[in-house]
């Protein structure tokens, strides 16, 4: 369970989040919606421990993630969390396999297990045939699927998606939705920050949180 209490966040004196309190249950699919600058990505980053709030409390499965040291925080990001970012957060000069590899490098898995996991995940997102293709040569949709494979490779319990369909055409957006739906069925907790109306219409979304000027409407 994810619990946020009285979250405030300001950048250079400008409040971007004001008094946000929120509970997300395990296995829920929640959409954070709002126009650009409404604070949804900032909120998502705070949930994912990638940014600290100016004040307030954040706990995940009863663990206060704001006071974890670097070792525990990194373990949390590696084992609990999956962050599906926008398609440009990849190593452009490396191929698909080499982009997924860093997510598994620090694990205790054997070489066979690592390559089997990479193969399994790329199969899931229909990218197995592109394993040796340089990321710079992939389309926007393929890059997004590469990020999804990298995110899921450690089997995270919580999946955060920041504008996942922003650079995708309709066909690739539908592929993404199918993947998210499958993950929801597996009992993963999913939080999606988006202004894509298609995502909000999905029947498997449990909760839509509308944000405006850093507040929940």
């Amino acid at each position: 369970m994810i619990r946020l209490q009285n979250i405030y966040k300001s950048f250079k004196g400008i409040e971007v989040l004001e008094d946000i309190s929120l509970d997300i249950s395990t296995g829920e699919c929640v959409v954070l919606s709002g126009v650009s600058g409404s604070g949804k990505s900032t909120l998502l980053s705070i949930i994912g421990s990638f940014m600290k709030p100016t004040s307030g409390d954040v706990s995940v499965n009863n663990t206060d993630i704001l006071n974890l040291n670097d070792f525990r925080l990194s373990e949390f990001r590696k084992d609990i969390l999956g962050f599906i970012t926008q398609s440009f957060h990849l190593f452009e000069t490396l191929n698909v396999r080499e982009n997924i590899l860093p997510a598994l490098l620090l694990s205790q898995l054997s070489q066979e297990e690592i390559y089997s996991k990479i193969s399994e995940l790329t199969k899931l997102v229909d990218m197995e045939h592109k394993l040796d293709t340089q990321v710079a040569l992939l389309s926007g949709g393929e890059k997004q699927r590469c990020i999804i494979a990298r995110t899921l490779v450690n089997n995270p319990k919580i999946i955060l998606c920041d504008e996942p369909t922003a650079n995708l055409d309709k066909e690739n957006t539908l592929v993404f939705i199918e993947i998210i739906h499958a993950l929801k069925k597996q009992g993963k907790t999913i939080v999606i920050a988006t202004h894509d109306p298609l995502i909000k219409e999905l029947d498997f979304v449990d909760k839509i949180i509308y944000m405006k000027d850093g507040r929940i409407e």
Binding site: S74, F76, K78, D79, T85, H89, P102, A103
Partner: peptide
């Protein structure tokens, strides 16, 4: 970007 991606993937500073 490389450093940020590695940190997001759970790499420690060390």
């Amino acid at each position: 970007k490389e450093i940020a991606i590695l940190r997001v993937l759970g790499w420690k500073i060390s």
